[in-house]
């Protein structure tokens, strides 16, 4: 009874969310998992006009075996690494630069955030121009800009490169999301009570020491939020890729695009399989986070 009084209110508060996620996420994932274990490779099978069979993990084996899907996975990894490190770097740097109140802070902050307001569809229109592959006399976009400012050696074919092209797509993604990571860090910086800062200053800490020993350690939960948010965006990175490249472009294929292609073909078994593989990849990303939280709990 005491337990109920103690734990009843928080449980009641969170119950609706748990229910909704249970239905809209887990229910659908289970449905998707079931489909991934069948041979429903056409609409006719999926809708029951033709019969389907249970095939176990065969789809997973078939898909993982293909060169093209391995290429997609490799691209995803590359994209995630570049996107994540870029946004974390710029987001943190900008928050750090702004924390100590710059002139016209509000204006600068809004400008840094602005790219996020430009939807991927719209951003794709302009970045498609900027990432133009022409160099030399016919150069346009960023390559042309490099020429104008005398950095000709930086010219390159951007995403038209089957090994590293996907990293070029991460540039607009970094442009879009760094401002948000900045906001996260800024909220973190500003959530730290002034007393803490003052106390450290009274103790004789200089600015750097203040950040190094007082402020940064407080930010790790915020940094983790940022990593997870950006990480999940990169896994789902789809809008931006198809706004700049094409679903068919080999250079920029990632699993989300494979999934899309399978879906347009009515190949629900394969689309679900890729979806579940993506979820498994997420598990890899999220497990360290959970371990960290659990450890933090223990230490408390």
């Amino acid at each position: 009874m005491r337990k109920l009084r103690r734990y009843g209110p928080p449980l009641a508060l969170i119950a609706p969310s748990v229910f909704l996620i249970g239905v809209f996420v887990y229910g659908l994932i289970i449905a998707s998992f079931q489909t991934s274990m069948t041979d429903a490779h056409t609409s006719a099978q999926f809708t029951g006009v033709q019969e389907t069979h249970f095939v176990g993990l065969q789809n997973y084996i078939d898909i993982l075996k293909t060169d093209n899907f391995q290429h997609s996975l490799r691209n995803l990894l590359l994209y995630t690494v570049v996107f994540l490190s870029g946004t974390m770097f710029f987001g943190f740097l900008w928050a750090f630069l702004l924390d100590k109140r710059a002139r016209a802070e509000g204006f600068i902050r809004s400008v840094y955030l602005f790219p996020m307001a430009v939807s991927s569809i719209a951003a794709g229109v302009v970045w498609k121009w900027l990432l133009n592959a022409n160099t030399g006399a016919r150069a346009s976009g960023l390559n042309r800009l490099f020429q104008l400012i005398g950095l000709d050696f930086l010219q390159n074919k951007w995403w038209s490169n089957y090994n590293w092209g996907i990293a070029a797509i991460a540039i607009p993604a970094i442009w879009q999301m760094s401002g948000y990571v900045m906001a996260l860090f800024l909220a973190g910086f500003r959530g730290i009570p002034n007393e803490l800062r003052e106390a450290a200053r009274v103790d004789g800490a200089n600015e750097w020491q203040l950040y190094r020993h007082v402020i940064f350690p407080q930010l790790s939960p915020v940094a983790l939020s940022a990593i997870i948010i950006i990480g999940h965006m990169s896994l789902k990175g789809f809008d931006l890729i198809v706004a700049i490249a094409k679903p068919a472009s080999y250079e920029t294929r990632v699993p989300a695009i494979d999934m899309y292609q399978f879906q347009t073909e009515g190949n629900y078994a394969n689309a679900s399989t890729v979806g579940i593989i993506l979820l498994l990849v997420v598990l890899v990303l999220i497990v360290p986070y959970l371990v960290h939280t659990a450890r933090a709990e223990k230490n408390r």
Partner: peptide
């Protein structure tokens, strides 16, 4: 419970579009 909720973020929308 937090993990349960958090994991929902990673749902691959395209794969679940028909059941959704």
């Amino acid at each position: 419970v937090f993990t349960f909720l958090l994991f929902g973020m990673f749902i691959p929308y395209q794969a679940v579009m028909v059941p959704l």
